[in-house]
């Protein structure tokens, strides 16, 4: 197999790789290909396992699980509408708060509001936030956030209880503490991707804005943010995706109550919290229903994440052309 070049002069030390080198090269290639294939097979295997385990539940109750509101193990009646509602509602609220703060911080750190060295310190602080484990946030939420927001929540309920958001009182765990902690958890994701997106805005565009006599905020709001809007939207979508899949902090803070309410102060539940709290003790039938819930969660996050990734890809291509 080793091909040899025959040369008239033999002064050169050049020679073909040894048979061993060829064998190593080939083995190495196949090992690397196997690694890449492993990722593809893993995804297929995940879908196959979760889908396969959920199949009996899908066959038994079909789409009715999606609209049923009861999770009744005794009667084997399983519905996950409250969980779907809770997942979407908590994530959306967290996106509103965490997204706003995250984008603001991205502006704060990229538009010379701080001297360079301080900006680095602040950026590190925000990045550290991403490193705090979810369960630690849960613990902090129980012992810091809930006692802290309770007086305000009670006051709001008394004064403005007619507004649906404040229609119940906060008795401990509930939607609001969960949303607050969730906002904090997605904030670093949003801030980091938004900073990258703003960093991609060509300097000449900023220069052009200032050259026209724009103030700092006119340049930011009317030129820089619109130019970076693609990247910022993908930051928001990916932050939303992160919120959807978040489990532990929510399981610890949201109260795990099977109900649908607009109120920020009432306990609620999410798909991930349902899995976390019911899976370990579930019997065979309930486990199939839980697998169904897992599949729904997978589908929702998949759609959101694919959308976010595509937006990111699309905008970076657009930026590369510009």
């Amino acid at each position: 197999m080793a091909f040899q070049l025959v040369l008239p002069d033999s002064k050169s030390v050049s020679q073909a790789p040894s048979p061993l080198a060829y064998a190593v090269d080939r083995t190495f290639f196949y090992a690397a290909a196997a690694g890449a294939l492993a990722i593809i097979l893993l995804v297929i295997y995940i879908l196959w396992e979760i889908g396969g385990q959920a199949l009996p539940a899908i066959g038994r109750s079909g789409a009715s699980v999606l609209v049923n509101t009861q999770w009744d193990v005794q009667n084997s009646s399983f519905g996950i509408l409250p969980q779907i509602w809770g997942t979407l509602y908590s994530s959306l609220m967290a996106l509103l708060i965490g997204g706003f703060i995250g984008v603001s911080i991205a502006i704060f750190l990229t538009q010379d509001f701080l001297p360079h060295s301080l900006a680095t310190v602040f950026r590190t602080l925000i990045e550290m936030l991403a490193a705090i484990p979810s369960v630690v946030f849960g613990l902090w939420g129980i012992f810091v956030v809930i006692p802290f927001v309770r007086p305000a929540a009670d006051w709001l309920h008394d004064a403005a209880g007619f507004i649906p958001f404040f229609s119940t009182s906060l008795s401990g765990p509930g939607m609001l503490p969960a949303v607050i902690v969730l906002s904090i958890m997605i904030l670093p994701t949003v801030a980091a991707i938004s900073q990258d997106a703003i960093g991609l805005v060509p300097y000449k565009i900023k220069e052009a804005a200032y050259g026209l006599g724009a103030t700092r905020w006119e340049a930011i709001l009317k030129v820089i943010l619109p130019t970076a809007s693609g990247g910022i939207s993908s930051a928001l979508v990916l932050g939303f995706g992160r919120a959807l899949g978040e489990t532990m902090a929510l399981a610890m803070l949201i109260g795990n109550a099977n109900q649908i309410s607009l109120s920020l102060f009432s306990p609620a539940t999410t798909l991930a919290a349902l899995l976390a709290s019911n899976f370990p003790e579930a019997g065979a039938i309930e486990r199939q229903a839980l697998m169904y819930a897992a599949l729904v969660l997978l589908a929702i996050t998949l759609v959101v994440n694919v959308a976010g990734t595509l937006i990111l890809l699309w905008t970076s291509r657009k930026m590369a052309k510009a």
């Binding site: 294939l37 893993l42 979760i50 899949g245 697998m291 998949l302």
Partner: peptide, 27 residues
Amino acid sequence: ISSVARFLAKVLTGFPSILAGVFVYAA
């Protein structure tokens, strides 16, 4: 293979971590 694997890896990074638990429970 590379483009599919790359795309799936990106999707997997946004994968809710509890689903890894559900999957490994089954597998």
